[in-house]
């Protein structure tokens, strides 16, 4: 079957989709967006987390056909998504311009939570990272000043095997603090 959907703001179409395929498979294998990860494919690890019409979901548990006509945001679109949330007016403000720093790697633009994960050492193997970023970004969207218990509850659907979560806690706290400074 054919599935048409919007991913990271762009209309996308996949053909010859098997009816049992998940949204995760379509993103990874048909649309060239492997950012959402295939760690368990049973909704237990959160590494495939994306936003589906704004809601945080495990893309491995969304049948491809259910995504027809929907809007999906993946980690690949997270920087734009976060920027869109912050932009009150188009263009770069003076303060923002002054804070601008060169970023290695072809000038990649990062969402605050992405930068915080790098800065806080929250990335090791990185396989859980995309899902955690999408979940943590949503948390900060809903709750800009989360307590530690709030962070733990919000991220309890995302398993990480490398970090012991401490640096992930640091990263979310850091992103929240930076976000608060900006306002």
């Amino acid at each position: 079957m054919r599935v048409s959907l919007t991913v990271n703001g762009r209309p996308q179409q996949a053909d010859d989709v098997w009816e049992g395929e998940s949204l995760l498979y379509v993103l990874r294998e048909r649309l060239g967006l492997p950012g959402a990860k295939n760690a368990c494919e049973q909704g237990e690890c959160g590494s495939c987390t994306v936003r589906l019409d704004g809601e945080l979901v495990c893309s491995c548990l969304v049948a491809a056909g259910q995504a027809e006509g929907r809007e999906v945001v993946t980690v690949e679109g997270l920087a734009d998504h976060a920027a869109g949330r912050r932009a009150t007016a188009p263009g770069v403000g003076l303060d923002e311009a002054r804070r601008w720093q060169p970023v290695p790697g072809e000038g990649a633009r990062l969402a605050p939570i992405q930068q915080a994960f790098i800065d806080a050492g929250a990335v090791q193997c990185g396989f859980c990272t995309p899902g955690l970023l999408v979940a943590a970004d949503e948390l900060l969207e809903q709750n800009p000043e989360p307590t530690d218990a709030d962070i733990r509850e919000a991220l309890s659907g995302n398993l990480c095997r490398c970090t012991g979560y401490e640096k992930i806690m640091d990263a979310v706290r850091l992103a929240a603090a930076r976000q608060a400074e900006e306002v």
Partner: peptide, 9 residues
């Protein structure tokens, strides 16, 4: 129930 992601679905 499970996780925030699952509770959304």
């Amino acid at each position: 129930v499970a996780s925030p992601q699952i509770r959304n679905r």
